[in-house]
């Protein structure tokens, strides 16, 4: 069930450094049903500019307390306005929207790979999965200030939401200001040389997702990715956010009729012979995925990567 809560109250907002904010709302309806990887669609004020809502991935949902929090970076007019909201203000929210991560897994070794704001939904996911699995996080950002609040740097008292990863993680920053200097995918690759994972989850910039996909595919590790897209409706109505479908459905790809164009594209890509072999053919490839409704979380094979 999706809810429209026109007057959710702001419990608190905290600038975690740089232009990253943590916004906590009292919103029991959405908090009770929100799953890791889902998002909410927020209006940024009552005026006509900005007109559209902003999709924000859910950073934490506490059903008992009815609290819902978002970790976001100020990138434009809408998020700028959101960042000004103070405790007691009201905000118009829709949610929970989209398909979240698959959490039906236990007793497995799980790797979470997050880049920048992409870390936020993975913290939510990891806390849940860590109850029944062995979870390892890999967090990356350009610089320290662009990392969302993590356990060891986060005063939980003033936000109303307790945030602690509850599982180990490694950090990489491109400028070396926190953790290892370099890309998060470097950390992952080194880890994979020592120890495998049964499943990977990734959220972050597209090049990072593509790199994680290549690493996972080469080792046959199932991977779920969360995609980002510009959205208008957020509920599958406008088709503004659709993307091309990949060859698979997340499980075993069906042997298809084989659209030659589709095959050639896959053969151009490194490490993609498996994908080419399991192409579901032109019919399936013609359908597009709605990031807002079919996703934002997809199995990597559901997404078309081409040469990425």
């Amino acid at each position: 069930m999706k809810y429209h809560v026109p007057h959710a109250s702001v419990v608190g907002q905290w600038n975690t450094g740089g232009n990253i904010f943590l916004l906590t709302l009292s919103c029991p309806e959405i908090a009770a049903e929100a799953r890791p990887g889902q998002f909410a669609h927020l209006r940024c004020g009552n005026t006509l500019d900005p007109l559209l809502r902003r999709p924000l991935s859910i950073f934490q949902a506490e059903a008992q307390k009815g609290l819902l929090s978002f970790c976001y970076q100020v990138v434009g007019k809408g998020t700028q306005l959101l960042s000004k909201l103070q405790a007691g203000a009201q905000v118009d929210v829709m949610g929970p929207l989209g398909r979240g991560f698959d959490t039906e897994i236990s007793g497995k070794r799980i790797g979470l790979v997050g880049g920048g704001m992409g870390i936020a939904p993975l913290v939510f996911l990891g806390r849940m999965l860590a109850r029944h699995n062995q979870v390892q996080g890999f967090w990356g950002a350009r610089t320290k200030e662009l990392l969302p609040p993590l356990a060891d740097q986060f005063p939980s008292g003033d936000s109303g939401v307790e945030v602690a990863c509850g599982f180990p993680y490694l950090v990489a920053t491109e400028d070396g200001s926190a953790g290892r200097q370099g890309l998060v995918t470097g950390l992952l690759e080194e880890w994979l040389e020592q120890e495998p994972f049964d499943r990977l989850y990734a959220c972050g910039p597209r090049p990072m997702l593509a790199a994680v996909h290549r690493l996972a595919q080469a080792r046959g590790i199932p991977l779920q990715v969360s995609l980002e897209a510009v959205m208008a409706c957020g509920v599958g109505a406008c088709l503004g956010c659709t993307c091309e479908k990949g060859p698979g459905d997340g499980g075993a790809g069906a042997e298809g009729t084989g659209n030659p164009v589709h095959r050639v594209r896959h053969q151009d890509a490194p490490n993609s012979h498996a994908a080419a072999e399991t192409s579901a053919g032109s019919l399936a490839a013609e359908k597009r995925l709605k990031v807002c409704q079919d996703g934002p979380v997809f199995w990597a094979e559901e997404v078309r990567w081409d040469g990425e």
């Binding site: 007109l51 510009v230 659709t242």
Partner: peptide, 11 residues
């Protein structure tokens, strides 16, 4: 894509 761009009071 991109298929959408927000403009002042418009889409």
């Amino acid at each position: 894509g991109p298929r959408l761009v927000e403009t002042p009071a418009g889409l």
